Computed example of a mutant assay.
Amino acid sequence: MLDRRRLLGLAAALTLGACATGPSIHADYDRSVDFSSFHTFSLASDTPQPGAPPLTWQRVSDAINRTLQARGFTRSDTPDFAVGFTLGKRDRIETWNYGPYYAGWGQWGGGPWGPSQTQVRTITEGTLTIDVFDAKTRRPVWSGTATQRLSGPVSQAEIDAAVTSVLAKFPPGSTQ
């Protein structure tokens, strides 16, 4: 159990890691919802998800609070909407083969110029998903996701940037 918790903790800590390019951002929403009626919010949970490092979870939670308040929303005990989030990571393997003719530019009429080369590497991607729920109906109404290649420990600035990038698409049609 401890090894699994450490692995999940590491995953969450690296979720928003530094990368030369910014995260890929995607959002989706319920088109029947009138988002103009959303003015107050609360967090859906005050407890970190299982396996998430409490400090990382708190940093993301704080970033969501700051970002929504900067956008004009007010935190409330009787909110119009609730915000939840999850942190995750996955490893994927990339392979590519250059083939025997890759380096053969100098031998137009001959056979292969060199041996085939195959390269394999493991890529770790982190994901932050922020979900918005209608507080009255408790139904999901909006979801935004940031996915980024991870390369090391995550700073508060990187967390803030990822949260800001995702929430820039909330509410739908906003200009911020």
Rank of each mutant, 00 (worst) to 15 (best):
P172M: 05
N65W: 12
T56V: 15
G84M: 08
I25E: 05
F85V: 13
R66G: 01
P112S: 13
Q107C: 02
S45K: 12
G17V: 05
G9T: 09
W113N: 05
A168V: 01
T137A: 14
P23K: 09
R90S: 14
L14Q: 02
V163Q: 08
A161T: 10
I159Q: 01
L167T: 11
I64C: 12
Q148C: 12
L55Y: 02
S24N: 08
L87V: 08
H39G: 04
T15E: 09
V154L: 03
D28G: 09
L68C: 12
P23W: 08
V83L: 06
F133C: 13
R75G: 11
N97V: 10
E158F: 00
R66N: 05
P100I: 09
L87M: 11
S32N: 07
Q107V: 06
R92M: 06
P54W: 00
Q117H: 08
Q176H: 12
F133K: 14
T74V: 13
D62Q: 05
G144W: 10
A27W: 03
T122K: 01
T21R: 12
T145D: 04
L8H: 11
V141T: 14
I25M: 12
E125R: 03
A27S: 15
T145V: 13
G84S: 15
T86H: 07
P153A: 06
Q148S: 13
T147K: 11
Y98D: 13
L14D: 01
G106R: 11
I123F: 00
G173I: 15
D91C: 00
S42C: 14
E125S: 10
T145G: 04
S36W: 03
G144M: 02
P140L: 13
A70Q: 07
T74M: 11
R75S: 13
A168E: 02
T56A: 08
S76W: 09
E94G: 03
Y98S: 13
A20F: 05
D91H: 06
Y101W: 10
W96D: 04
T127F: 01
P115F: 04
Q156D: 07
T78Y: 12
V154Y: 00
F73W: 09
D62P: 00
P172H: 05
T95E: 08
E125M: 03
V141G: 06
W105T: 14
A52V: 15
I159A: 06
G51I: 04
S42P: 14
T122F: 00
A20Y: 03
F133G: 08
V154A: 03
Q156A: 00
G88V: 02
Q58E: 04
V120T: 10
T175Y: 01
P115V: 09
G84E: 15
A63M: 03
L87A: 06
W113H: 04
K89F: 07
Y101S: 11
E158P: 00
S165A: 15
L2D: 10
W57K: 09
N97I: 08
R31A: 11
V33K: 15
D77Y: 04
S116Q: 07
Q107R: 06
P79W: 09
G114H: 07
A103G: 12
R138I: 09
I64G: 14
Y102I: 05
W113C: 01
W96E: 11
L10I: 07
I130W: 14
Q119A: 10
T175I: 10
Y29K: 10
G126Q: 09
Q58P: 00
W57D: 11
G152K: 05
